[in-house]
Design a protein around this nucleic acid. Structure first.
Lengths: 201, 201
DNA sequence: TCTTATACAAACATGCATGTATGTAAATAG
DNA sequence: CTATTTACATACATGCATGTTTGTATAAGA
């Protein structure tokens, strides 16, 4: 029992979160046991229980790690001379992040397909706050596009934003599991281009 | 131990499937125990194990019950004089089914949010066959719309079908949990209308 | 330098879900 | 009418995941 320094302990904590992501992804959250995570991290359950209250606590810690890269890399520039093109670029960046950052992708796959939204986990869904924020950003971007005269007549920014919001939701739902395929990114960019072109004046 | 007739046994089977749906929906598939299901159905685990091999078997039996009403109520009529309007109507029917048939909705909510796609359950996702069929129907409907001159120029039926496919996916993902709200249906129909209007010539 | 808190490992206790085996009364087949 | 099968209920055996407790060597604080 060589006691670790604070920095070493922090490393251990990271390793546990990393291992958790891998095991969650392979076994699903429910079938993942803290023993499996501990083994994958090269520690014992003692370490896991030291750093985290329980599996749920560990799950949310893992989730928060992946939320950041997404929210601060996918941005809609307010001063874009081409707001509609900006929306297209933002969506492309979004799928590029998923394609190029395996940890982020794994986490999103866990959240989407390997976790049951009941009891303590129901609030993950209720994390609509984050989603609503995205919808709001989209709406404002479309408003700017409209004031730049880029939008087709007869559609409000809100309507278009909602449609795009659902588009992204569908993209996540249908393609997350098939991501590492390199052809996918090309494919998704095509779909994004079409989607945006539909709103262009 | 009053032995049941064949018909009574079939009723028992149905009751078990019904109870399974309710408990799956409340507890999630993983946390659902066969004991809970049995109790909810007014039987013992003996009955459950008699009718089904295990929880997985029961899950898929439940799923198959809900698949039928969906596939044969949502249709794209081949001889529609207004194919594009037909697409809009088909999508409206789709959400009406979810709004009006609680059992179907519950099952879809279970599949979407209360089940982890690993091991034996991974094949549910791989039930892409059903999804691909839907995408195919959409594509053919858009082809008919195109030959009727209803589509905006510059977009292929396949592109539009994919975008609509993702739209429906997003609709499922974001609104399934909030369905019983009566305002939702109105809301969804608005979104569907906008979505279809975007493709109109 | 001495003390205390830390960062775990190891051991323990518990409960619960599963699967199977056995029992049984009545339905059904012959 | 008898034999067999059916449709369960009940009882049993097992394993595994969880949470807690205890032990301990050392880092950090005073």
């Amino acid at each position: 029992m060589v006691r670790k320094t604070k920095e070493e302990a922090e490393i251990t904590r990271r390793q546990i979160i990393d291992a958790a992501r891998r095991v969650f992804h392979e076994c699903g959250v429910s079938r993942t046991t803290l023993e499996k995570i501990a083994t994958a991290a090269g520690v014992t359950r003692g370490a896991v229980y030291w750093h985290f209250k329980n599996k749920t606590d560990l799950f949310f810690a893992m989730r928060d790690e992946a939320k950041l890269p997404m929210v601060d890399q996918v941005v809609f520039h307010e001063d874009d001379a081409d707001p509609l093109g900006g929306i297209e670029r933002a969506l492309q960046i979004l799928i590029r992040i998923l394609a190029e950052q395996p940890e982020v992708r794994e986490t999103f796959e866990i959240i989407s397909f390997k976790c049951e939204y009941v009891d303590e986990f129901a609030q993950v869904l209720q994390n609509a706050s984050c989603q609503l924020e995205f919808l709001d950003k989209l709406t404002r971007a479309y408003e700017r596009a409209q004031s730049h005269g880029q939008l087709r007549a007869g559609f409000t920014p809100s309507q278009l934003a909602h449609d795009s919001f659902l588009f992204v939701g569908g993209l996540f739902k249908h393609w997350l599991g098939r991501m590492p395929d390199t052809r996918f990114q090309e494919w998704a960019n095509q779909l994004i281009h079409t989607h945006v072109a539909l709103r262009r004046a």
